[in-house]
């Protein structure tokens, strides 16, 4: 399917105290099934807004979106969201956090033993089988983010939405989680829309990098096809001419064409 997720002339205008604020305008994007697309742009350009529109947490003031042949109206468990700050419920263990989502989506059709199995499988996928019964506050930032990913994936969403999932992590943890995400996406064939402000992250993980212009009234500036073969190796790519070229293209967009907002 060539346009599994279709965003059609979407615009978002917020009503603020100072009047109307046009955050996004004329966004057109079609994402293929199994594709990994990242959104990159300067802070405040509207990346989170676009992701929240797809998540259904916001309703667009213009245009519409279709996911797997159905119009998106409101949030729903066919989209798995990984929030920027993990958003795990602190009074639930890792298992219970994931189970909450699994139970909601599969609880009507499957017995409890199946639900538990799904939960364990999701935690295993992100390498956290040993931390099943830990509470979020006993985990490192990277581990919390893994639980967030497990929770989003456990419900077998049509599309996985990630909002700067590794933004709050140190560089080493971030790199290992990026590798992990590459592996998970390869294993599950998930369709992914990821917000990031990290150029290397965008190029390393994506099939396409969507570069957004600065707000207000931000829109898609350019789309870069990342034609690097998979599996991708972080170390091997560091010296790869094609990788360096693509990376430079994104940097040029961000720091030459869209320089203003960097101030």
């Amino acid at each position: 399917m060539d346009n599994f997720l279709q965003i059609e002339s979407v615009g978002m205008t917020f009503d603020t105290k100072k009047g109307e604020f046009v955050a996004l305008t004329g966004i057109n994007l079609a994402v293929r099934k199994g594709e990994f697309v990242s959104l990159i742009g300067h802070s405040g350009c509207g990346k989170s807004t676009l992701l929240n529109l797809v998540a259904g947490l916001l309703t667009p003031t213009d245009g519409g979106m279709i996911l797997a042949g159905r119009e998106i109206d409101g949030p729903g468990p066919d989209r798995g969201v990984v929030f920027q700050n993990h958003s795990l419920l602190p009074w639930l263990s890792c298992f219970e956090n994931v189970y909450l989502a699994v139970e909601r989506v599969f609880g009507a059709a499957e017995p409890k033993s199946m639900l538990r199995e799904r939960t364990h499988a999701a935690l295993k996928l992100v390498g956290l089988s040993h931390a099943t019964d830990k509470k979020p506050q006993e985990l490192s930032g990277g581990m919390k983010q893994r639980v967030g990913i497990a929770r989003a994936l456990a419900i077998e969403p049509k599309v996985l939405l990630l909002d700067e999932p590794f933004g709050a992590l140190d560089a080493l943890t971030r790199a290992s989680l990026q590798d992990e995400l590459i592996r998970i996406v390869a294993e599950t064939g998930a369709t992914v829309l990821m917000v990031t402000h990290d150029v290397d992250e965008a190029v390393l993980l994506s099939d396409r990098v969507v570069m957004m212009t600065n707000g207000p009234a931000a829109t898609i500036g350019e789309i870069l096809e990342v034609d690097l073969p998979r599996p991708r190796e972080r170390l091997a790519l560091a010296a790869n001419a094609r990788y360096i070229h693509l990376r430079t293209r994104v940097l040029e967009f961000l720091y030459q064409k869209q320089f203003k907002a960097a101030a």
């Binding site: 998540a55 259904g56 947490l57 949030p75 729903g76 468990p77 989209r79 798995g80 969201v81 929030f83 700050n85 958003s87 419920l89 909450l100 989502a101 909601r104 989506v105 419900i155």
Partner: peptide, 12 residues
């Protein structure tokens, strides 16, 4: 709001 967003996304 994060916790409530989790609820909204899952439609609890």
């Amino acid at each position: 709001q994060d916790y409530l967003n989790v609820a909204r996304v899952l439609k609890l």
